[in-house]
Nucleic acid binder design. Structure first.
Length: 880
DNA sequence: ATGCTCACG
DNA sequence: ACGTACGTGAGCATC
C-alpha cells in the first residue's frame, strides 16, 4: 500500500516554535522549532511508514490571494526573529532526512498540498496531510486524512470525513463555507461580523452553503438578517480566500516524491550540528564523526589482588561507586571503579566489598587523609552507610560543581557532562543497564568498562570544573558552603527523625471514619456514586449533572480545584463537603498512609533524602518522604506534626526559624531605607508596609489592610505583576496596579532594585545571589511576551530566594562545626527552607536555645539584623 | 508517562 | 491581546 505524507512546513514550524521553550545550542542559535519539527518527522516516519513524502512551504509574501484582497494576512504579528532564523535550518534538516520539499512563488503551502492530494487521490494513494491549520479539513476524503496538531505538537488529531461529520456535522467541502461565514482573524479574513463558530454551524446545518445562506437571508430573523445582507460580499470573498487552490501549475510529479528513508550518518551529522544530543544517543546514529566511546583499559580486581589495590592510590584518586536506585537509603551498590592520578583504572565487583580481603580498601574509603574525587558524595556516602562502610576524605564532588555552574540544567549525568565539557563520550546508564522493568546489571566486562569510563571522566572533569568555578567567582560558594553542606546533609539523613507509627495509625482511623461519612453524604447529594478522586468524574457530576457554572477550564476539561470549588460553594451545599473531603483525603493518603510506608520498622525513623542539585534557586528539596511540606497552615493537618518526636527518651524537639528572611534579604540587596528601617526597629513588616502604602498610623492599620500589604510583600518577592496580585487578592488588575505603584512610591529602593536586576539579567544573561550563586535566564530577551515576562520575574525572585538559601545553608555548615566543637549530643535533623529542626537532650536545651539562633543570625552579616525564633517541645507540633 | 490537585516555604 | 505570581514533591486517575 502506497502512502503519501504531506506536511504544511510553515504551519508546523510555527506550532513547534510556540509549543516548545526557547532552546538554543552552544553558539546561541535557537533550535526549538527545529527540534519540534524533528520529533514530528521521526514520529511520522516510524508510525506511518510513508512511501512518498513532501514538505511544502509558503514562498515569499505576495500570493494570488493578495491580488483580490490586499489585506489578506494583514495585521499579523511579524514572525519572531527567533523563529525566522530557524527556517534555513529546518530546510536543511528536511534535506538531511532525504525528504522532498517544495515551494512555488505566488502560492501557499496549502495550495501545493491541495494540488498534490488531488493528484494522489486520482492515483489511488493514501494521503496524510499534517498541519496546524483547520482550513486543511476541506481536503479530507476517503483516501485523504488530515492530521491536525493538538496542544503542543507531539500529539495530532486525525480527521477523516466521518470525524469531521461527527465534530462539526459538515462534509469537508463545507469547511470553506464555515470560514466564509465566521472569517479567520489570524489570516485577516473578515467573514460576517458577529458570526462565530456556533452561529456559522447553525446556519450551515440549515442552509448548507454560503450561497444558500445569502439567497435565503430573508428567512433569517432579527439582527442577523441585517448583518448577513450587509456583509454578503465579505462572506463571498472570505469563502473564496479560504478555498484551497488545487490546480497549482507544478512541475513536480508524484513519482518524484517517493521516500526510501534517511541515511543514518547524514542525519547524525545534522543532529550533531544542531546539538541534538539526546536524539543522537537515543537513535544510535553512528558513522560520520565518531560519537562512540573510545576504548578503555581496566583491570578487574579479584579476591587475590584486592589487598594490594590501594597501594596504587598515591595521589588524588577518582572513585566511582555505582549506587542503584533513586533513594540511596534503600539502594544497591553494584560496583566500584577507581582511576589513579597516573590514569590506571581498576574495577571491583560490589560483592567483594564485604570480604575480609577488602579490609584495606574499606579503610582507604574511610580515610580522611586519602583524597578522593567522586560524583555525588552525599548519595554515595548514604548508600555506603547502609552497607556499613563509611566514606571520608572526599576532596572534590563533580556533581556539585556542575550544578553550581548551571543550576537550571535538568540533569548533570556524567554522560551529559562529557558532552557539555567536550570530553570523551560515555554511554548513558539507560543504554548500559536498561530501564524500568528491563533493568539488569551487565556482565563484569561491560560493567567494569562503563564504571571505569566514569571514574576516568571524573578525573578529567575536575580541572575543567575548578577553572570554571574560579572564573565565576564561586570558590567560596563551593568550598565553604555547598561542598561541606553535602556531608552535613548526609549526616542528618543517616540520623533520621523518629515518627510515631501508632499515633499515625490512630489519626488515620479517625480520618477514615470522618471521610466515610462525608463520602456517603456527597454521594447522596449527587444522586449517584462515583470516584470522588477523579477530577473528570467530579466535573461531570458538578457541571453536567448538577448544572453548576463553569468557572475555569483545564486543558483536558473542567477545573475542580479548591479555588473553583470555593466559588461554587454558595450554589450547592455538596461543594463544601467536597472541599473538606479533599482536605482530609490528602491528609490520609499523603501524610498518614504515605508516611507510614516510610517509617523503618527497626528504628521507627524516617530518613528523608535532600536533593542538593535540583532547585534552580539554590534551595534544597526533600524526597522519600518529602519532609518539607508537612502540613502546618490548617489545624487538622498540623496535628500530623505531633508524630514527629525525639528518638531518645526525655529528649526534646527544637525548631528554629528565620523571621522574614526573604524580605530582610531584599532590604539588604536593594538598600531600601524604609525597608531597612522597618527591620532595624524590629517592626511587623506587613503592618509597616500597610502604614506606608495606605498612609495611616500604626493604630489605624486594620486586619484587611495588613492582609493586603502582606500579599503585596509576597508579590514583591515573587517578581510582582499586577495580574498575579489581582488574582491573589481577588481585586481588579487596575486596583492591583495602583497598589504596586503606591508601594514603589514609598519603597523606592525596591523599585530601583527590580529595574536594575532585570537590566543586569539582560546584560549578563544571568543574575546572582549574595554568595555568587548564578542563575542563567536565556529568555530575558525573548520576543515572546510570556517567556520574557517569566524571565523578568525570575530575575527579581531568584537572587532573593537564592540568597536566603545561601544564608541558611551557611548556617547549617557553621552549626555542624560548632556542635562538633562543643561536643553536644544534640542533632540537626531537618531543614525546611527557613527552619532547622533538632533533637536535644534536656541538659543541652539551654545551650542549644542560645547557640542555634546565635549561629543562624550571624551566618552572614547583612545591613539589617537577621532574626531567629526558637521553640521547643515534646514533638514538632509543640515546637511552634 | 502526563495532568490535576494540593502540601510546604 | 497576550495570560503568570517564585520554588518544590507526592498521590491519584487516566491514557
Amino acid at each position: 500500500m502506497e502512502k503519501l505524507i504531506l506536511i504544511d512546513g510553515n504551519s508546523i514550524a510555527y506550532r513547534a516554535f510556540f509549543a516548545l521553550p526557547l532552546l538554543s545550542n552552544s553558539s546561541g542559535l535557537h533550535t526549538n522549532a527545529v527540534f519540534g519539527f524533528t520529533t514530528m518527522l521521526l514520529k511520522l516516519i516510524e508510525e506511518q511508514k510513508p512511501t512518498h513524502f513532501l514538505v511544502a512551504f509558503d514562498a515569499g509574501k505576495a500570493t494570488f490571494r493578495h491580488e483580490g484582497y490586499k489585506e489578506y494576512k494583514g495585521g499579523r504579528e511579524k514572525t519572531p526573529p527567533e523563529l525566522s532564523e530557524q527556517f534555513p535550518l529546518i530546510k536543511e534538516l528536511i534535506q538531511s532526512f532525504s525528504i522532498n520539499q517544495y515551494e512555488l512563488a505566488g502560492y501557499e503551502a496549502d495550495d501545493i498540498i491541495g494540488t498534490m492530494t488531488r493528484m494522489a487521490d486520482e492515483r489511488g494513494l493514501d494521503v496524510i496531510v499534517v498541519s496546524g491549520d483547520k482550513d486543511m479539513l476541506q481536503l479530507a476524503s476517503d483516501r485523504v486524512t488530515i492530521a491536525l496538531t493538538r496542544k503542543g505538537i507531539s500529539e495530532v488529531d486525525l480527521y477523516t470525513p466521518q470525524a469531521i461529520q461527527d465534530k462539526y456535522g459538515l462534509v469537508p467541502k463545507q469547511i470553506i463555507d464555515l470560514k466564509g461565514l465566521m472569517g479567520d482573524a489570524s489570516d485577516n479574513i473578515p467573514g460576517i461580523p458577529g458570526v462565530g463558530e456556533k452561529t456559522a454551524l447553525k446556519l450551515l446545518h440549515q442552509y448548507s452553503s454560503v450561497e444558500e445562506v445569502l439567497a435565503k437571508a430573508d428567512e433569517i430573523t432579527g439582527k442577523m438578517q441585517e448583518k448577513i445582507k450587509q456583509h454578503a460580499d465579505d462572506a463571498r470573498m472570505s469563502k473564496e480566500l479560504a478555498t484551497i487552490f488545487r490546480e497549482v501549475p507544478m512541475e513536480l510529479q508524484l513519482d518524484e516524491l517517493s521516500y526510501n528513508g534517511y541515511e543514518g550518518p547524514t542525519l547524525g551529522a545534522m543532529f550533531r550540528k544542531l546539538e541534538f544530543k539526546s536524539l543522537l544517543e537515543k537513535m544510535d546514529l553512528s558513522g560520520g564523526e565518531p560519537a562512540v566511546e573510545t576504548s578503555i583499559e581496566v583491570e578487574i580486581v579479584g579476591r587475590e589482588s584486592l589487598a594490594a589495590l590501594t597501594d596504587a592510590f598515591t595521589g588524588v584518586t577518582a572513585v566511582h561507586i555505582e549506587v542503584i536506585g533513586e533513594n540511596p537509603h534503600v539502594s544497591e551498590i553494584i560496583g566500584l571503579a577507581f582511576s589513579t592520578a597516573e590514569g590506571a583504572n581498576r574495577f571491583v565487583p560490589a560483592e567483594l566489598l564485604h570480604i575480609p580481603e577488602a579490609g584495606r580498601l574499606r579503610d582507604w574509603l574511610a580515610d580522611d587523609n586519602a583524597p578522593k574525587i567522586v560524583y555525588d558524595m552525599h548519595r554515595t556516602e548514604v548508600g555506603l552507610h547502609w552497607k556499613g562502610v563509611p566514606l571520608r576524605g572526599v576532596s572534590f564532588d563533580v556533581l556539585i560543581a556542575a550544578y553550581l555552574l548551571d543550576p537550571t540544567e535538568s540533569t548533570h549525568t556524567l554522560s551529559e557532562l562529557a558532552g557539555r565539557y567536550k570530553l570523551p563520550v560515555i554511554a548513558l546508564d539507560e543504554n548500559v543497564y536498561g530501564k524500568g522493568a528491563k533493568f539488569k546489571v551487565p556482565e563484569a566486562d561491560v560493567l567494569s568498562k562503563h564504571l571505569a569510563r566514569k571514574a576516568d571522566l571524573l578525573r578529567r572533569l575536575v580541572p575543567v570544573l575548578q577553572d570554571e568555578l574560579d572564573n565565576n567567582e564561586m570558590h567560596r560558594l563551593y568550598y565553604e558552603l555547598e561542598f561541606p553542606l553535602a556531608r552535613v546533609l548526609a549526616s542528618m539523613e543517616k540520623q533520621g527523625i523518629r515518627a510515631n507509627a501508632d499515633g499515625l495509625k490512630q489519626l488515620g482511623g479517625e480520618l477514615g471514619q470522618t471521610i466515610e461519612k462525608l463520602v456517603d453524604g456527597i454521594y447522596k447529594a449527587a444522586g449517584s456514586e462515583f470516584n470522588l478522586n477523579s477530577p473528570k468524574q467530579l466535573g461531570e457530576i458538578l457541571f453536567d449533572k448538577l448544572g453548576l457554572p463553569v468557572v475555569k477550564k483545564t486543558k483536558t476539561g473542567y477545573s475542580t480545584d479548591a479555588e473553583v470549588l470555593e466559588k461554587l460553594a454558595p450554589y450547592n451545599e455538596v461543594v463544601s463537603s467536597i472541599l473538606i473531603y479533599r482536605q482530609l483525603a490528602k491528609l490520609q493518603s499523603t501524610y498518614v498512609e504515605g508516611l507510614l510506608k516510610e517509617i523503618r520498622g527497626e528504628t521507627g525513623k524516617v530518613h528523608t533524602y535532600y536533593q542538593q542539585t535540583i532547585a534552580a534557586t539554590g534551595r534544597l528539596s526533600s524526597q522519600f518522604p518529602n519532609l518539607q511540606n508537612i502540613p502546618v497552615r490548617l489545624e487538622e493537618g498540623r496535628k500530623i506534626r505531633k508524630v514527629f518526636v525525639a528518638s531518645e527518651p526525655d529528649w526534646l524537639i527544637l525548631a528554629a526559624d528565620y523571621s522574614q528572611i526573604e524580605l530582610r534579604v531584599l532590604a539588604h540587596i536593594s538598600g531600601d531605607e524604609k525597608l531597612k528601617e522597618a527591620f532595624r526597629n524590629d517592626m511587623d513588616v506587613h503592618t509597616k508596609t500597610a502604614m506606608d502604602v495606605f498612609g495611616v498610623s500604626e493604630a489605624d492599620v486594620d486586619a484587611n489592610m495588613r492582609r493586603q500589604a502582606k500579599a503585596v510583600n509576597f508579590g514583591i518577592v515573587y517578581g510582582i505583576s499586577d495580574y498575579g496580585l489581582s488574582q491573589n487578592l481577588n481585586i481588579t488588575r487596575k486596583e492591583a496596579a495602583q497598589f504596586i505603584e503606591q508601594y514603589f512610591a514609598v519603597f523606592q529602593g525596591v523599585r530601583h532594585y527590580m529595574d536594575d536586576i532585570v537590566r543586569q539579567a539582560r546584560t549578563n544573561g544571568y543574575v546572582t545571589t549574595l554568595l555568587q550563586r548564578r542563575r542563567y535566564l536565556p529568555e530575558i530577551n525573548a520576543s515572546n511576551f510570556n517567556l520574557r515576562s517569566f524571565a523578568e520575574r525570575t530575575a527579581m525572585n531568584s537572587p532573593i530566594q537564592g540568597s536566603a538559601a545561601d544564608i541558611i545553608k551557611l548556617a547549617m555548615v557553621q552549626l555542624a562545626e560548632r556542635m562538633a566543637k562543643e561536643k553536644v549530643r544534640s542533632r540537626m535533623l531537618l531543614q525546611v527552607h527557613d527552619e532547622l529542626v533538632f533533637e536535644v537532650p534536656q541538659d543541652e536545651l539551654e545551650l542549644m536555645k542560645q547557640l542555634v539562633p546565635e549561629v543562624m543570625e550571624s551566618a552572614l552579616a547583612l545591613d539589617v539584623p537577621l532574626k531567629v525564633d526558637v521553640n521547643y517541645g515534646d514533638n514538632w507540633y509543640e515546637a511552634k
